[in-house]
Simulated scan of single mutants.
Amino acid sequence: MVWLQRCTAEVDTVLARMRALGACWPEHDGVAVFNRVYLAVTEEIGRHLGDGRFVDGRAATTLDVRFAERYLAVAEEALGPTGGGSVPACWRPLVQLRRHPGIRPLQFALAGIHAHIGHDLALAVVDTCHALGCGPADLEDEFEQVGVVLVALEERIREEVMPGPDLLQVADPLTHLIGAWSLERAREAAWAAARALWALRGLPELAEEFTDRLDAAVGFANRLLLTPLPL
């Protein structure tokens, strides 16, 4: 089908941009850690575009691509070879602390996921609604199915960037730090924020203030997630 070929091409373009960025950064760079995680998630979503998992493949692709472009704009404009631009508050802790030796890979991965889901996802839903001429309710199935992929990959992600081969010990501070964060709660908050922003679309000043507050709140939480810990 023509739409499937177009959707696949759009996702392939996003994947190529992520791989190009990853090639520019050292393996242990904090943003590189998140980039690898996000690359795996996007590859997984791309594999499901034509297998019937998504009720509306075109809507799912539009949401996925708009979502990815939010991260890529930060990564390419501020962190790419010719970068130097400003960084949103939600991404600032990860960018500033990306080479800190006292921060573990799992913290970097979760901070990137939190910035992207806690802030970018809500804006991507609104972007998709404008692009498709629909409302958030029309994207709920696609939003939930993307969430299913994310939740299924979360455990694998934690295992891949865990500091050792065994489960974290109760006495390890990282156990308590990551226990305060939940992917499911972050997704629920993103959906509520997207609906609120859509309701405020006729009030641009209020919508901008809401977006700024959301950005700042996610940035504050990320600074806590990136607390340096003893090895």
Rank of each mutant, 00 (worst) to 15 (best):
E209K: 10
V149E: 12
V31C: 14
C129Y: 10
A68S: 14
L123E: 04
I117T: 07
V148K: 15
L106C: 02
H130M: 08
G57P: 00
S86H: 14
A9H: 07
A131N: 02
G164Q: 14
A9D: 10
Y71E: 06
R98V: 06
M162V: 01
R195Y: 02
C90Y: 04
A190F: 03
R158K: 13
T128W: 07
A193M: 06
L183P: 00
G133C: 05
F220K: 05
L150S: 04
E188M: 13
H114G: 00
L123Y: 03
T82M: 11
L183S: 01
P228F: 09
F108M: 05
E69W: 13
V14W: 03
A20D: 13
D166Q: 14
V95S: 03
A73S: 11
A189L: 13
A221V: 03
H176F: 15
E27K: 12
R36F: 11
W3L: 07
V2M: 09
L110H: 09
L224Y: 15
A40Y: 02
I103G: 00
V161F: 15
V149M: 08
V87H: 01
F210A: 14
G30K: 04
G219V: 10
V37W: 08
E142R: 08
D166M: 11
D138K: 09
E77P: 00
V125T: 07
W25L: 08
G147R: 11
L168A: 03
H100K: 02
G118P: 02
D138W: 09
D64N: 10
T8K: 06
Y38E: 09
A192I: 05
E142H: 09
P163L: 11
S182R: 12
V33Y: 03
V170H: 13
A190R: 02
F143Y: 15
E159W: 09
G112F: 02
G219R: 06
Q5P: 00
D64E: 12
V161L: 08
L225P: 00
G219E: 06
A16W: 10
G57D: 04
L150M: 15
E140T: 12
D166P: 00
E144Y: 10
P93W: 09
R17G: 01
E205P: 00
L94T: 06
H130Y: 14
Q169R: 15
F67S: 02
P81S: 11
T13V: 02
E205M: 09
C24Y: 13
Q5T: 08
V161A: 08
W191P: 01
Q96V: 13
G84T: 10
T175F: 14
H116D: 12
